[in-house]
Computed example of a mutant assay.
Amino acid sequence: MTRANWDDLRFVLAVAEEGSVSAAARRLRVNHATVLRRVAAYEDSVGTSLFDKTVRGYAVPSAMDRVIEAAREVDRAVQAVGRALRGTHAPLAGEVRVTSTDSLCHCVLAPIVARLRIVSPELQVELMCSNRHLDLGRTDADIAVRPATDLPDDLVGEVAAVLGFGLYRARGVDTGDWIGLSGPLARSRVGRWIDATVGSGRIVARADSFVVAREFAAVGMGLAAMPDFLGAEDTRLDRVEGILPDLAVDIWVASHADLAHVPRIAAVRRQLTEALAAQAERLRGGMGGA
């Protein structure tokens, strides 16, 4: 279909939906004569009349119902293209909910979100700190930034960086006690390694947060495994070598498949991915090594 034919078809659709030339003219913000001319032009191009012209207005004969419905589908498609194009050029604005772990929220993502706001002041990011995996299918969040071995089938995303882990204790404190992990962190790679390797009698406390585990270590309670950057950037702690194996895990930036192409969500996901990739060396850390 040529552009001219689609332009004429817009007038046909307006008349069909409004039931009269005058109403179609008001909807399209043109004069009465223009509507008549464009409908006639389309009918001439297809070689048939589309309306029964009565004293009550323009009626669509049943034989033409499928034609009008097809015109509606074309109209919806054209409108969808327009919305998509506007979305790609519009400034980044609106609300986006991002969920991530406590350590990434506190020490990595907050400065990144602050920089996003400078570039896009109309953007509002809700940063949801939780070590449990929120259900993106139920729209608990729009974007998840998560250390994980892989993604569930209903999520789409990219690996932005790799999160390395290290073992730390209070500076100058020689201890054989350990800080265990609880809650969702107990099921993480490092949590499972601690439970499988360290005897329960050596675990003096547990935490469902790496930030809390770091605080336990900093006050001398025991050895704590944590994201390497979290320990390396704390002057209260010493890194302990030769015990913790390489337990690195990918950091994914993902959305539910149904939300992945929403312009503001896709844009924020891309910018988060790029910002995390720029910190890849920091997030990887020195790595453990048994």
Rank of each mutant, 00 (worst) to 15 (best):
Q279L: 08
S103D: 15
D246A: 10
V67F: 06
A161Y: 07
R282A: 07
A93L: 05
L181S: 11
V55H: 11
S130F: 00
R206Q: 10
R66T: 06
A25H: 07
V98E: 05
R97G: 00
A290R: 14
D142L: 01
D258A: 14
V98K: 07
V159R: 15
P263W: 05
R169M: 03
F165A: 08
V219N: 02
L50C: 04
I265L: 11
T54I: 13
R284S: 11
D75K: 13
G288E: 11
A41L: 06
G199V: 03
A224Q: 10
L181I: 12
L50E: 09
S45M: 02
M128E: 03
L116V: 01
R192I: 08
T2M: 04
R284H: 10
D228M: 05
V212R: 14
E73F: 04
V145F: 00
A144W: 06
G157E: 08
H32N: 15
A196E: 15
G222V: 10
R27A: 11
D153Q: 15
L109N: 12
A205H: 05
M1V: 08
L9Q: 13
L276M: 02
M128F: 04
A114V: 01
R132D: 14
E122A: 14
G191V: 05
V253F: 14
G201L: 15
T197W: 07
T2L: 03
W6M: 02
L237Y: 07
P111F: 11
I243N: 01
Q124I: 09
F229R: 00
V268D: 04
E69W: 02
G172W: 05
D228S: 12
I179Y: 00
G199Y: 04
C105T: 09
R187I: 01
V30T: 13
G231W: 01
G180Y: 09
R132I: 03
F210S: 03
G166M: 07
A114H: 10
R10M: 07
L116D: 00
I243V: 14
H256C: 05
G164I: 05
D153R: 12
V145T: 04
H133C: 03
R138M: 10
L155I: 06
V96Y: 12
G166A: 13
A148Q: 13
V219E: 08
R264L: 06
M64A: 04
D135N: 15
V268I: 00
W252Q: 13
R138I: 00
D135S: 09
G180I: 02
R37G: 03
I112K: 01
L272H: 02
L9V: 10
T34V: 12
R282G: 04
L244T: 04
D246S: 09
R236H: 02
G285F: 15
E126N: 11
V81F: 08
R56D: 13
G176Q: 00
E158H: 14
G57D: 04
G176I: 00
E215R: 10
D228H: 13
G183P: 12
A280S: 15
N31H: 11
R189W: 08
L151H: 10
T273L: 02
G87S: 04
A217M: 02
L123E: 02
N5G: 02
